[in-house]
């Protein structure tokens, strides 16, 4: 029963260009802009140390020696050393993140399943095992 073989419309040149540009825009708007505007940086806090010395920065002798081999002084290394991640867990944002990820996967899998049924029906209910309709 060669029924209901879906014949997709041919996409014209303009449509193809539009779709390509859309994807580029998506990359730039959603991923690139937040990056260059600094919205997505690490969540950190920095402690300021007045007149830093290796000792005040908590570096032992060996560590201080290695810093110096890399060309650092206590002043130039101070910020690197005292900047720490801020691992505060905000239950609301954690929940939001979890819901977004889970919801995304549920949507993708359910939608895929719907589309997959069409694919299988057309492939296996058509004219025999090879599906036919290849061009």
């Amino acid at each position: 029963m060669a029924r209901n073989v879906y014949r997709p419309p041919e996409q014209g040149r303009a449509g193809q260009v539009f779709d390509s540009v859309f994807l580029l825009l998506l990359v730039y708007l959603v991923l690139f802009m937040p990056l260059i505007f600094g919205l997505t940086g690490q969540a950190t806090t920095t402690r300021v140390v007045e007149n830093p010395t290796w000792e005040a920065l908590g570096q032992n002798e060996v560590a201080a020696g290695q810093w110096e081999k890399l060309g650092f002084t206590p002043e130039s290394a101070s910020e690197l050393i005292t900047t720490r991640f801020d691992y505060v867990i905000n239950p609301l944002s954690l929940l939001l993140t979890a819901v977004v990820i889970l919801g995304y996967f549920l949507f993708v899998i359910r939608m895929s399943d719907k589309e997959y049924r069409d694919v299988i029906a057309e492939r296996f209910d058509g004219d025999g095992r090879d599906g036919g309709g290849r061009r």
């Binding site: 073989v5 879906y6 997709p8 419309p9 041919e10 996409q11 779709d19 859309f22 994807l23 998506l26 990359v27 959603v30 991923l31 937040p34 919205l39 997505t40 993140t97 977004v100 990820i101 995304y104 949507f107 993708v108 939608m111 589309e115 069409d118 694919v119 299988i120 057309e122 492939r123 058509g126 599906g131 036919g132 309709g133 290849r134």
Partner: peptide, 27 residues
């Protein structure tokens, strides 16, 4: 940000792009 990217792209695919795809040929 990354999740929003994939969500928008998925919606675009499911409701716009997929109409150009041959069904049975994907398998």
């Amino acid at each position: 940000a990354m999740m929003s990217f994939y969500i928008v792209a998925s919606l675009w695919f499911a409701f716009h792009r997929y109409k150009y795809v041959r069904r049975g040929d994907q398998f």
